[in-house]
Amino acid sequence: MLLAIDVALLIEKLVLIVVVVFASLGIAMYTTFAERKVAAILQDRRGPNRAGPFGLLQPLADGLKLFFKEEIIPNFSSKFLFILGPALAMLTACMTSAVIPWGDKVELFGRTIDLQIADVNIGILYVFGVVSLGVYGIMIGSWASNNKFSLLGGLRAASQIISYELAMGISMIALLMVTGTLSLKEMVVQQQHHYWNVVYQPLGFLIFLICAFAECNRTPFDLPEAENELIGGYHTEYSSMKLGFYLFSEYINMFISSVVMATLYFGGYDMPFVNEAALAPNMAALVGIVALLAKVVCFIFFFMWVRWTIPRFRYDQLMHLGWRILIPLALFNMLTTGGAILYFSK
């Protein structure tokens, strides 16, 4: 046979990819709605409540509005790169979901299906790689706009993401030393049998959380789009759905980083105090997905809570925090973890 491909496996994975991507888009859509509602609650307002019951159709209305807006491409911009920017931002935001275990196995039509698109043995490094590529969307878009404000926003984003990637990577190394595996699936299985990783790595988790805020460009690290000094930051020149892509990719990033944090430090699809092995497989998978999504909702709420509570950093404070506080702390955490492993394994 010319191309020996397992057709059933191909279809299975394709369905899984479509479901995961659309689910993350849908969740990100309603995260925009939740963000406005949370902001409203924190500021003692009502929030969007006109479109549909309780304002539930608001994200659809927002999307429609963005689609129908006039699309403006600046005359002196590099047109191909101008379009490539938001496309890349969206692509890298969606790509991370490939290695995340969404649940255990389900049995459908006599097949056992893993609820993970790819269980590669470098899972966590893949996540890290895609995160490090995320900055290209912003940088390309900001340069192609041919606007000084945009460029400054893009440069801020690049230096911020590179700086915080270091601390994030080092805190991840400490986690890897504890788990001894790079596969996200194995990490979750370990956490089902032992305590959650956050018990072993509290400092590591704190560093990871702060870096996740910075990587997602969320307040207090949203300097790339600081509107009072940079107009709109890297997306100043963007309009219509291209602007929508940039804004939307931020919400997808937020969702995905919540999933990654839940998986790495909070047991992933492990429901606490429930023995999944005793349940029927499909039931266990359902319980797992619900547990994971519940943890994710908590994280997303935390992201929003911080955004509407804490003001933005000044740029030098941001760099100071990244290089002088987080990196030494992460190094300290790595060394203590190594020492503890050596001491207890003796």
Partner: peptide, 15 residues
Amino acid sequence: NIIVYAGAIMVLFLF
């Protein structure tokens, strides 16, 4: 290769 070259070094180059 992707993390180090594409993700870090080339971003600095682009910068």
